Computed example of a mutant assay.
Amino acid sequence: MTNMVSVTVENIQQVVDTSMQQPLVFCFTSSQAPESMQMLGQLQTINSRMGNFTLAHVDCDAQPQIVQYFRIQGVPTVIILKEGQPVDAFSGMKSDSELEQALKPHLPSEVDMLFEQGVVLLSEGKASEAVKVLHQAYTLEPSAIVAKAYAHALLDNKQNADAGEIIASIRLEDQDGEYDTLKSKYQLALEAADSPEIRQLFATVEAEPENMTALVELAVALHGAGRNEEALEHLLCVLKKDLAAGNGEVRKSLMDILSALGQGDPLAAKYRRGLYSLLY
């Protein structure tokens, strides 16, 4: 779907304001120059595929005041704005590849888009979704700024072990104030994940290995603290000996945790395979 707006004298300021969020590409056309409409079509196609800029169409025949304001000498003309300021302009026809090359230096990369999306999700408290998006960004470009945001998302999603690995990978020259905050957040998460309740449940399970109620309670507590691999491992070890352990409650608990982790989670995939190997 094309992100395009038709520009008029009434809405031009509102349209220009959108360049504060993402690049704005003005395309000036005229019915007296059919090739200019071809250029608009090319830009619409690129916009539909890339989606990382707003396309603003100015009909020069209907909007002479805007034409005069931008001092347009001929069509097609393209003007690119970022943060309210023109950063590039060109006139005349271009091939699709030439258009893309002309736009590319001014458009956010895939990593930039994923990073911004992930940060917004994180600010909205959608940690699980933020982890998925920032993981993609980190895979494409493991820069310090992406790594820090990714680690924050992992900690908010209680994936402490994964967050610890990311934090450890941040180079000395990138260890600034935000890094210190991240380290403190990580330490607090580790302390919270080793609560007195969990320690007591560990002691009960060790003293009473046949107490399946305590085992399930321990798994639930570990899952709540983000210690998912420990929770799943304890449950699967028991299921390897007895698939019906705890009248089916152990198996149900494992499946509940797998479901909570989701289909795309690699840890869930690992333990789902382990469970299936016992069932089949």
Rank of each mutant, 00 (worst) to 15 (best):
D88L: 00
L239T: 02
S184K: 11
P209L: 02
M1W: 00
T139R: 13
R273V: 10
L235E: 03
K183M: 12
P266S: 05
P142D: 13
L239D: 04
V87W: 02
L236E: 11
I46W: 03
S123N: 14
H57K: 14
G41F: 02
L239E: 09
D61I: 04
Q68S: 15
L40C: 05
M93E: 01
Y150P: 08
Q68R: 12
G125A: 11
A260K: 14
P34C: 04
V238E: 14
L201S: 03
S109L: 02
N47Q: 09
L24F: 03
T18F: 04
E83K: 15
T77F: 04
A153Q: 08
N211D: 15
H223C: 01
V111C: 08
I145T: 15
E233V: 12
F70P: 09
F115H: 14
N228C: 09
S48L: 01
I166L: 06
H135V: 01
L43V: 04
G248T: 03
Y138L: 07
A221V: 01
R199G: 02
E178N: 10
L121A: 03
T77P: 05
L218F: 06
G177A: 13
M37K: 14
V5F: 04
E178S: 10
K82F: 00
N247V: 04
A245T: 12
P105D: 09
E116Q: 15
A89L: 05
A219P: 09
E173K: 15
Y150F: 15
V75D: 01
Y179L: 04
S143M: 11
P105V: 02
P86L: 08
G51T: 06
A137T: 02
L134S: 02
A144V: 10
M1V: 12
A219R: 07
E191T: 13
A193N: 07
M50R: 14
E178D: 15
M50N: 08
L24H: 08
A268N: 05
Q136I: 06
S6I: 13
T18W: 05
D96S: 12
D256H: 07
K104M: 12
D176C: 01
E141N: 14
K148D: 03
Q187M: 12
A147Q: 09
Q38I: 13
L222G: 03
V133I: 15
A56T: 03
S143E: 10
S277M: 08
Q68I: 00
E210I: 00
H152A: 06
I79G: 01
E100F: 04
M93H: 03
A147P: 07
G264S: 11
L43C: 07
A193R: 07
A189V: 02
T29R: 02
L107K: 07
S253Y: 05
Q187D: 10
Q200Y: 01
M1F: 09
V67N: 05
T29C: 12
P86F: 02
E197G: 03
T213K: 12
N228V: 11
E173R: 14
D88I: 00
